[in-house]
Amino acid sequence: MADKSNFTLPLVISAGIHIGVLIVLVMGVDFSEKPKPQPQASAPVVQAFVVDQKQITQHVEKLKAEKRETLRKEKVRQDELDRQAKLAVQKREQEQAKIKKLERERKQKEIETKNATAAAKAAQLKQKQEKQKAQEAEVFRKQKEKERKASEEAAKKAADKRKQEEAAAKKAADERKRKEDAERKRKADAERKRIAEEKARQQQEQMMQDALAAEQAELSQTRNKQVMNEVQRYTSMIRATIQRNLVVDESMRGKTCRVFVRLATDGFVTGTKILSGDPVVCRAAKAAINKAGRLPVSTEPDVYNKLKEINLTVQPEFN
């Protein structure tokens, strides 16, 4: 029990310190402000906290193992108490049977004593020659009376012994109940402690998940902006390539054509489709696309996925 207390106190202190740190951190956060980037130097602090939590978890597992060992020992002790109680019951039943037997013998001896007394009284009425017989009967009666008293004394001692054994059995039962109540209380305290530690662990995990989610959102927003910039740049390059290969005349001035283009990963044109616009401009735009054969396309998958099927508006340019 002393070893268990030595482990419990440091664990409680450690858990209390970490819970206090978490509460201070939560109360100190200003949720009205936007999240600020954290410096790289904070990483060692998080790592130290995680390592400490791991040590706490290992310590909890050790306490659980000790708890199981304590329960096993308690069961062995309880089984021994039950065995002793059963032996006491058996012994008490044997003593009761003995008492009943002695009681029957006492009654039998009382009968015999009465018979002897009657014989003594009858002998007094007889002739003097039977006086010796009467005296012998009286001696016999006194002997039986002595045996009866001895039987009563033995019965009384047996009853006292039975009472003592019952008192001992009751004391053992009370002790067992006291230990069972103490064990239930210990289990309840351990469960409350486990729930508190689990809550602290969940709060820590939630804080880490929130931080990772915020960082991921920021990275995703930056990446999307970069991808859109690249898409716009390559779209401009595709339009410029089509313009270089576009044959124009005055009849196209001010007119446009909207065309769908499908591109392979190397920029090769795998399909085109006129969507709307001036027929002359559309024929010239399709011819310019076919003449180019390949159009500029990014090797980055995110950018290519937005360029592999695009709709372009072609408008002839005049110097």
Rank of each mutant, 00 (worst) to 15 (best):
D210R: 12
A154L: 12
T299F: 02
R194Q: 14
L307N: 00
A15Q: 14
K75H: 11
K146E: 14
E197T: 03
P39D: 14
V269N: 01
E145W: 04
Q132P: 03
E110A: 15
E138N: 05
Q221C: 01
V24C: 06
R283H: 08
G271T: 03
I13N: 13
A172W: 00
K54M: 05
K67S: 12
K67Q: 10
K109W: 09
A264R: 13
L312W: 01
K199G: 10
E218K: 10
D181H: 12
E309V: 03
R283N: 15
T8M: 09
E153W: 11
Q209V: 07
I13R: 13
R83Y: 05
N319W: 03
Q129C: 06
G277N: 03
A213D: 09
Q226S: 10
S42N: 13
Q216L: 12
T57W: 03
Q204W: 06
T241F: 00
R83H: 06
A88G: 10
E147M: 14
T265C: 08
G254C: 02
R92A: 14
P44W: 08
D249K: 00
K187V: 08
R77Q: 11
E198W: 04
Y234T: 02
E183D: 13
A196I: 09
I17V: 10
A123T: 04
N229A: 14
L246Q: 01
T8I: 09
N224F: 03
T270R: 15
C257L: 01
Q90M: 12
N229H: 10
D181R: 15
Q132Y: 03
A65P: 00
E112T: 15
K98Y: 05
Q94M: 12
K67I: 07
E166Y: 06
K100L: 05
S5I: 07
K170V: 05
A200N: 05
A123K: 05
E191H: 08
E191R: 11
A169S: 13
A88W: 04
K54G: 05
E250C: 04
T8Y: 07
A172P: 00
D249H: 00
V314L: 00
L295M: 00
